[in-house]
């Protein structure tokens, strides 16, 4: 039997918060990704299946789903790596509201990016001068280590603390805040520490490291959050967080 004769049994979540799994038979192919499987179902078996994707090459971060119980970027996840006994179970990301089928509402995820103040705030320096940032400096190295996030939401879905505490800012927003904090050109770095120290901010993290374990681009949000904990605690003890 060649691989083209074999089929995969694929259970896919249908509905929103309430719903059930629907089973499909999908031809097994060489070098097939989980996104290929979902796309096959949508194009050949059920055009009403809702899912989200864009780039298909691991850049946009929009195709993440829960595959056999783990959050993954489906465009870069080969079926052969995750299939168990010829079966795939595909569900939307956890810790986010489900709009329909495999599509989640990312609004809470991005609202927390805003709340963690992960955007650049210009300083008072002259606008026609370039700020010198040494590539080997400690801040630039820390920012570089955290900056390649693709906003996919895998870490947010994998985080136990997010599942327990709706208000927790989560690993992605805090990782972004750490990258922004290490941008020496930022005009209000203390404002970032204030933002991540309020309510369920960086100190809420239990350092379980699920974010680091699951991050598809091998970032280490736990390390970033630890940096924010240290920096904001120092600022607090110096009275700079009032």
């Amino acid at each position: 039997m060649t691989s083209s004769d074999r089929t995969l049994k694929v259970d896919i979540w249908r509905g929103n918060e309430k719903g059930e799994y629907q089973s499909f038979e999908v031809p097994e192919r060489e070098n097939q990704t989980v996104l290929d499987v979902v796309t096959y179902i949508q194009r050949h078996l059920d055009p009403a299946l809702a899912y989200r994707f864009a780039c298909r090459v691991g850049v946009c971060g929009s195709c993440t789903m829960t595959v056999n119980g783990r959050p993954r970027w489906t465009c870069r996840t080969h079926v052969s790596r995750v299939v168990k006994g010829g079966k795939l179970t595909i569900a939307p990301l956890t810790n986010l509201p489900v709009i329909r089928d495999l599509v989640t509402d990312m609004t809470p995820f991005f609202e927390k990016w805003r709340d963690a103040r992960g955007r650049f705030v210009a300083g008072d320096g002259p606008k026609d001068e370039l700020a010198p940032v040494q590539p080997e400096s400690r801040e630039r190295s820390a920012a570089s280590a955290a900056i390649e996030c693709i906003n996919c939401g895998v870490c947010y879905s994998a985080c136990d603390v997010v599942s327990w505490n709706d208000d927790y800012l989560g690993p992605a927003a805090l990782n972004r805040a750490w990258a922004a904090y290490n941008d020496v050109r930022d005009g209000d770095r203390n404002g970032i520490l204030k933002a991540v120290s309020q309510g369920a901010g960086c100190h809420t993290c239990h350092s379980h490291q699920s974010c680091t374990e699951h991050c598809p681009v091998s970032l280490n949000p736990t390390f970033s959050i630890a940096g924010l904990k240290r920096a904001s605690l120092k600022a607090k003890l110096k009275g700079a967080l009032k």
């Binding site: 120290s197 369920a200 100190h203 605690l233």
Partner: peptide
Amino acid sequence: MTPLSYFL
């Protein structure tokens, strides 16, 4: 958790 309770 606040920075102070984290510290404590």
